[in-house]
Design a protein around this nucleic acid. Structure first.
Lengths: 183, 183, 183, 183
DNA sequence: TATGAATGAGCGTTCATTCAT
DNA sequence: TATGAATGAACGCTCATTCAT
């Protein structure tokens, strides 16, 4: 995975993978049909555990929806932005069109599930009056977009202009849920 | 450009480029030092004209800031999302880390300029009272994020779940500028 | 070796080497870093065994120095002049300046050792009164020069004018040691 | 010529030759059929003027033959050893077998003429009693060999072990003509 | 006569894949 | 099941040669 992230699919060498895995190059072919299927399976197995962890997280239904969204977003930033997982996202963006099976899988397992969860939270917030804009439920992408941008930003532009993702998140939440009234 | 978009840098063959360009392989080397510099120059020359067109656009200072932002965003969606330019953006995201020169160039010519322009509009809107959230001026990325997501979405997931980018844009603008009052 | 001798370094094709060696082209790169290092190693491994054979030769200290030198020179003519080894010498002369590592190696392993051995013989001959000219010890090259010329001659001009290297050697030895008195 | 000397035939680029000559690459083909014939003609035209200069030199028949040979040898060392011409000799040795036309030409124009001249001097010296060894007339190569060795030495090993060619020449002449009696 | 852009065959090198052990 | 030497197709790049101007 690290090799594919660092070099992209085409530029990654099976030699390096074998060396890093501590096996002989031929051994790889006992487990994978070829480089392509290895790449696909590796992406899958790298995503699945992260998704399951998210899925089994305690919903913490007691606080406000904003708090729940904030907790999720923070967790996402902490666990993804600026880590190897950010590069994994970038890798999927990069190789997706050439590996439809991967894009399909990623949409099914991550994107659509994430959107469903977000839509649920949005609808709850609307019902509770925390969110005023009812159309938001049709575009849960809007809730997630800044987090995605933060992830890609860290990967591409952090050294040009560091981004305070936490502060941006707060501003974003203020836009969605209305600014917190200072007590 | 089409070849690099379709296959990524590493998997693109100079033979194919030459064939598509209608020249012999050696001819390429009369114009470019090697594959890398060809890639970098192509990205540059593909971006520059688009940026200059944007830069010379009439500012249309008469209407509301929301109208100006909406006009810009619509133009962006029309000219980028779902076109080859979307794949160009994807390509930069994909290859950026391996071509720092390209990421640098893209940040300098496109990202930073775009953010400056957005910040200007946000500050104008705050001054006019169109935007209530003053912190937004610190994160012009929030204004642009949904457009970026729309671009990547079209490239990656359109066939799984079509995205009505125009409608999403309206919802986004409502969040930022406050929902339009039905007249 | 034969390919390099026949064509020189630059004009030799790895395809031909592989074919002659009965392996695939890629196999070469399991043993050598690149064409240059292959060339250098081949020269080395071709020279070393010959030098060691010379080095371990019985000195035959009983006869006259002239007899010893004559035996050595005859052996050299027989084993080098007119054989593939002559072309090896030519190859080193030809490519030496472009492969300093090879020239260095050849000087260290062959030339300097040979000269030391020759100087030893010359000094012995001077001590025994076989050689009258004491300055010769400073220029052992003079002892060897005709042998080198014979080697190059065979390689370049033999078909224009055959050279009787043996007879030339006798004349050379007569100059150095004084003509044999007819008994 | 400088290019061919520096790189050998195969590794020399017509681009470099054209640049150095201050003409366009295509222009070369107005004067030479191809790279090979250019090489051959260039070698020829580089050798001829030097040979003619030697041929028209005043014979200086008044002094001893040793003085005449010494003068010639000194001139040779000065004009060839350690100069570009030394590399020309090396080039001919290197490429000779692959360019029989060049080896032929060189033998005819330089080697055989030089040997004839040397034989003439040797016979004169024998007639005058300056040389005692009559067989030397059959091997004028012996007279020239040390000069050739000096030329190649300078080109290949000078930086390992500088060679005092002048002193070696004196010793060589002492061997041939007998040591000078100290007056 | 001179140009130099264009050609395309050919080369050194890489690397995914195979297979005898 | 594991190895790693061997393969050979394929790639990036070079450069002698051509030819329209």
């Amino acid at each position: 995975m690290d090799e594919f992230i660092a070099r992209g699919f085409a530029a990654t060498r099976l030699d390096d993978i074998a060396k890093r895995a501590g096996v002989a190059k031929g051994t790889i072919y006992l487990h994978f049909k070829d480089k392509e299927s290895m790449f696909e399976e590796l992406i899958r197995t790298a995503i699945v555990p992260f998704v399951s962890r998210l899925a089994t997280m305690p919903p913490a239904m007691n606080g406000s929806v904003r708090d729940m969204v904030e907790a999720l977003a923070r967790m996402f930033l902490k666990e993804v932005a600026g880590t190897r997982r950010a590069d994994l996202v970038r890798l999927i963006v990069a190789e997706g069109p050439r590996f439809p099976a991967i894009a399909d899988f990623y949409y099914r397992e991550v994107v659509s599930r994430g959107l469903v969860a977000m839509r649920g939270l949005i609808e709850l917030a609307i019902a509770r009056g925390e969110i005023r804009e009812p159309k938001l439920a049709q575009f849960p992408q809007l809730l997630i977009a800044p987090m995605m941008i933060a992830v890609l930003w860290k990967s591409l532009f952090e050294r040009h202009a560091p981004l305070d993702a936490e502060a941006m998140l707060q501003t974003h939440l203020d836009l969605i849920f209305g600014a917190r009234r200072p007590t």
